[in-house]
Amino acid sequence: MAKYIGLMSGTSMDGVDAVLCDITVDKCQTLHAVSIPYPANLLSLLHSLCTPSHNELNAMATADRLVAYSFAQAVSVLLSETQLSPSDITAIGSHGQTIRHFPQGIELQNDIEQKGFTCQIGDPNTLAVLTGIDVIADFRRKDIALGGQGAPLVPAYHNAIFAHDTHPRVLVNIGGIANISVLAPKRNEAPPLGYDTGPGNTLMDGWIKQHLNLPYDDKGQWADTGLVSDSLLTKLLCDSYFHQAAPKSTGREYFNLAWLTSHIDALTRPSAIEVASSEASTLSPQDVQATLLALTATSIADEISKHQLPQEAEVIVCGGGAFNPVLMQRISSLLPQYHVSDSRSINIHPQHVEGAAFAWLAFAHKNNIPGNVPAVTGASREAVLGVLCPAN
């Protein structure tokens, strides 16, 4: 086995996860993991880069290197805690920090042709120099170049490591955005399916930040004090993204507080039906939070149900959402036919799955193994993903 480190910071930006793994072709054993927060001033800069702002090119270039420094600090802490040296690590797989994700492109001025893109920062050259370890990064843009969404990339890892011998599994990652990987039994030798289902924690995090100045709703306690608005939930679920066929991916560029506010405002317009208007006018902030939690759970459960899996299928949740018991209970109640658990049931901590995925993608790069699944991303073919930045 060879040791790899995976580095991940998701759309929630709640910290840099560094995960140490021993990896072979069919095994990825997590040995240790650490998580460190971004410095407050860098976190503020990163949030500002997620929407158009003044002088953002200079800000992005500066943040690109600062993110690499934070990633290097996480590696340093991990090596210190495990008493390993850089020479013990084959490579680092760095996801970087996503600040824009527009796989379908975005309309610009002057009739410029739209081209899809995704942008992750965290300069891998700086990271390689600071750590003394080879870095493999920029995993998403090869898939974009091949006509794919560039996301999600975790289904290939999920399938290689977590597919069960005899029954299907669904891996649900609930970060800022939620995505699913539908894994056939290994004996079927079928490729996985997967896509982003919609918002995970991003709307709930933004709403509680706006109203209580808290970074997230700890264990869903605030949402649990509210009542779900059926009219608001129905309106949110009418959004075209939820009815779009896969392959599809999304981000906080789409699902954000401006998107939410536009739907709440629509319920209070004079043209809205009387019942909906009356209900919307009495919605408390915690009612909206409860409805956002229901939106995440329902959009995930609806997509899983579409696959009509047998009752022996397992639904396994990872990511930050796995630590929200109110959310987990709601998902379970919407999927009574399946056993729902978090990823500790398959011997990996929910917070470590995505970091381990990018350690595995670095291993895949080194061993010429395709890291994308065309049926998932829509790419024209399989490809080895990532770019190598040597330490020397």
Rank of each mutant, 00 (worst) to 15 (best):
S9A: 13
V16L: 11
I23A: 06
I23T: 01
V34S: 03
I36D: 09
L43T: 04
L46W: 10
S48F: 03
T51E: 13
T51F: 08
A63I: 09
L66R: 09
Y69N: 13
Q73H: 13
V75E: 06
V77A: 02
S80W: 03
L84G: 03
T90R: 13
I92Q: 13
G105Y: 07
K115W: 08
F117E: 08
N125P: 02
L127N: 07
L130K: 09
I133R: 01
V135C: 10
R140D: 04
A145T: 12
L146W: 04
L153H: 11
P155R: 05
Y157I: 11
N159Y: 04
I161E: 00
T166H: 12
I177T: 11
N179C: 06
L183P: 10
R187P: 00
P192I: 07
D196N: 13
L203T: 06
P215D: 15
A223I: 08
D230E: 15
L232G: 06
A245M: 07
F255R: 04
N256R: 10
A258Q: 15
L260H: 09
S262D: 11
I264L: 12
A266D: 15
L267C: 14
S277F: 01
S277C: 11
E279L: 05
A280G: 14
S281Y: 04
T291D: 09
L293H: 01
A297L: 05
I300C: 14
A301W: 00
A301N: 00
I304L: 10
S305A: 12
P310I: 00
Q311M: 12
V317R: 03
G320R: 09
R330K: 14
H339L: 08
S341P: 01
N347D: 15
H349K: 13
E354L: 10
F358P: 01
A364L: 04
K366F: 01
N368V: 02
V376R: 00
A379F: 02
S380F: 04
G386R: 03
